[in-house]
Design a protein around this nucleic acid. Structure first.
Lengths: 213, 213
DNA sequence: TCGCAAACGGACCGCACTGTCCGCTTACCG
DNA sequence: CGGTAAGCGGACAGTGCGGTCCGTTTGCGA
């Protein structure tokens, strides 16, 4: 990736990456390429030399965020008590989402199903699956949840509050309700089964999903 | 509102309103005024004669949707069993949200706290508050939930799925988890208290909430 | 030090979208 | 039926954005 860039090019590349990450956290995928260039202290065109277009840059950001999340989940998967691990992972991810609009959009939104991000996505899901299976075997979590559900429920908690970025920590309230709902006791049956990842990818690829922003 | 319009003007007004409602359902607040005019079969400028600007139109749409929701909740509030009423209301609202992007954005997003929509909002919240109080008195719902929480939890269910508009009914799955989490048994304590509506309004008015789209 | 390819960035293009203007049309009333 | 004001809508203005071009600068190897 770094390839044989000239020293100034490599320096600019770092500046762009840093600025992009910062702006992506604050504005999400809707960031403006001009702002990005200004923040990085380079010309507008230099950004486009590094990333052929905006979509490519956003995908790179998403990939980056998913890698972060994968690390968090892997760490949580190491915990002795599976339920505690799940709570820790969900809390840690939601915590970051509360401060990072880009991450908010990365987990559980349409991009999550993008074929381009398949590898990153699977690296996130695998450890969660392991954790979830352990918790279910121990009777700590209802049996009808799939690993992807866990991520979607995190996003749900984040999106619950209309002022997610203005009243910090409010998400904890809704995550609390959701965590209680994930327990086996008093669990009612869930009607549509969890879709497979293949089904997600198909749905994302839909012409109906002509998302703007 | 209808005032003394000429017959053709009144006819156009209806066409615009109908087209706006339709487009708002499909595209949400991001709709394009040009598309709207085309769909209504009137000139671009005619739309702006009816609504001074886009924001005004969107607010009118939001008001309209909130009125619909108020009706749904009022109806559910009449049910004998309070819990059944809550489930019915939450399901009905989520059901509409799954088919109406505008409604999705109206309930539980930032606009929900807009001072302009205070009246409409309160008409939605009041019957839910009554229903919730009954359910809590009957021991059917955990005591630490406020009426606004219910709406935010509906939105949470809707936002859980990354392809809300592509895999219909998937929201039912996440609403199921949330409903289970709203029950009193096994309820853990919720850490940040529910903010008051005044606190929401203050948060929405924040400079930090420079929302785009 | 010199030469040159690599890299830079200001200027520019095209597009989409909101909002305005103004000459033309049409409903209504006497 | 004819005068008139209300209404209409195509054309235009302004803005913000993604993406490209091309003359200038700069790092680097010979």
């Amino acid at each position: 990736m770094a390839e044989n860039l000239r020293s100034d090019a490599r320096r600019n590349r770092e500046k762009i990456l840093a600025a992009a990450s910062e702006l992506f956290a604050r504005e999400g995928a809707g960031l403006c390429m001009d702002d990005l260039a200004r923040r990085a202290g380079v010309g507008h065109a230099t950004v486009f030399r590094r990333f052929p277009n905006k979509e490519e840059l956003i995908l790179a950001m998403f990939e980056d965020r998913l890698a972060d999340v994968a690390e968090l989940v892997e760490e949580a998967a190491g915990s002795e008590d599976a339920w505690e691990g799940i709570v820790a992972a969900m809390t840690a991810i939601a915590e970051r989402q509360a401060r990072d609009r880009g991450l908010m959009e990365a987990v559980g939104t349409e991009v999550f199903g993008s074929p381009r991000l398949r590898a990153a996505r699977e690296r996130v899901i695998a450890p969660m699956g392991e954790l979830l299976a352990r918790a279910q075997a121990a009777g700590q979590v209802r049996d009808d949840l799939a690993p992807t559900d866990v991520f979607f429920l995190i996003t749900a908690a984040g999106h619950a509050s209309p002022c997610h970025f203005d009243i910090p920590d409010l998400w904890r309230r809704y995550l609390g309700v959701i965590l209680d709902g994930m327990r086996p006791s008093g669990a009612s049956s869930l009607s549509p089964p969890a879709p497979t990842l293949a089904e997600f990818e198909a749905a994302i690829g839909n012409p109906a999903a002509a998302s703007s922003a």
